[in-house]
Amino acid sequence: MTNPQPNTAVDHSETPSIAEAAATTEAVIDNVETVIIGNRAEIEHIVVALFADGHILLEDVPGVGKTMLARALAASIDCSFKRVQFTPDLLPSDITGVNVFNQKTREFDFQRGPIFANVVLGDEINRAPPKTQSALLEAMEERQVTTDGTTRPLPEPFTVIATQNDVELGRTYELPLAEIDRFMKKLRLGYPTPKEETQLLERVSGAHPIETVQSVASAEELLRARETVKTIRVSEPIRVYISNLVEYTRQNATLGVSPRGSISLMRGAQARAMLDERSYVIPDDIQTEAPAVLSHRIRTESGTETNTSLIRRALEAVPVE
């Protein structure tokens, strides 16, 4: 009866792999933080998405560190990193690669595009026309690229971090829904606080820290952590809760969250639980992940409500199971 000592078995006695994965995740987050000042929550989101095997879309005004964040993340993992600057005249083959005729062998050799990397940074993705953007679709969802009838698998791990500028909308193309749905999360960074900005200025006054950032995890470790995430238990009440949340968006928005969205939410919550060294998902994980995972997937009636406010409403209205 009287056993008032904290029950350490509850939160901390996870399988070693969870603790290990959590440690890896923590290390990556801390490492990114050495480059990016503030935005701890967003960094966590991005790292969690990375470990949940998801792609990330960063949307904000220019200059708040979107690209820097993506670069820091890629640098933290010991893996290949490619960057594509999307422009209106960018062609699909500029991303996927082209077959080049080899004079010596008299054969076409496939010249791999920048998509063949572990981490691909697509900068200002909405400046490219839909045709080019669609080149990303197959890569993002199926982890493979098909050119001239030949399908080539992408390396593991494969993560797309895209940024888009939402101020100069005149010279942009709206991302097709099918593509936007393939991003696990859409995040905004926002401006740093004055205090953070002061700290930021101090840090970049000499050499920029991105130049010296070291990798803290191998691609191997990332893959193992992703496998661990898949073992996190998602209990019946949690599955019901996700379904109810998703159903709520379908009832209250012109376009609700797709089943891919609910899968993403579950995966994100699993990774979130892993980060917390927990072997099971709790509703709090769902609530943390839901705004970032769901809000870019819905279309509200124009003028009435923003996507984020609808998701917030859903979280308030749907009872926690």
Partner: peptide, 21 residues
């Protein structure tokens, strides 16, 4: 303990006794 019982894995009799007390 409640989270563990509801969302997590098996809980033990000891856990229950702790929680009630």
């Amino acid at each position: 303990l409640y989270e563990k019982s509801r969302y997590g894995e098996q809980v033990t009799r000891d856990d229950a006794i702790t929680a009630v007390s």
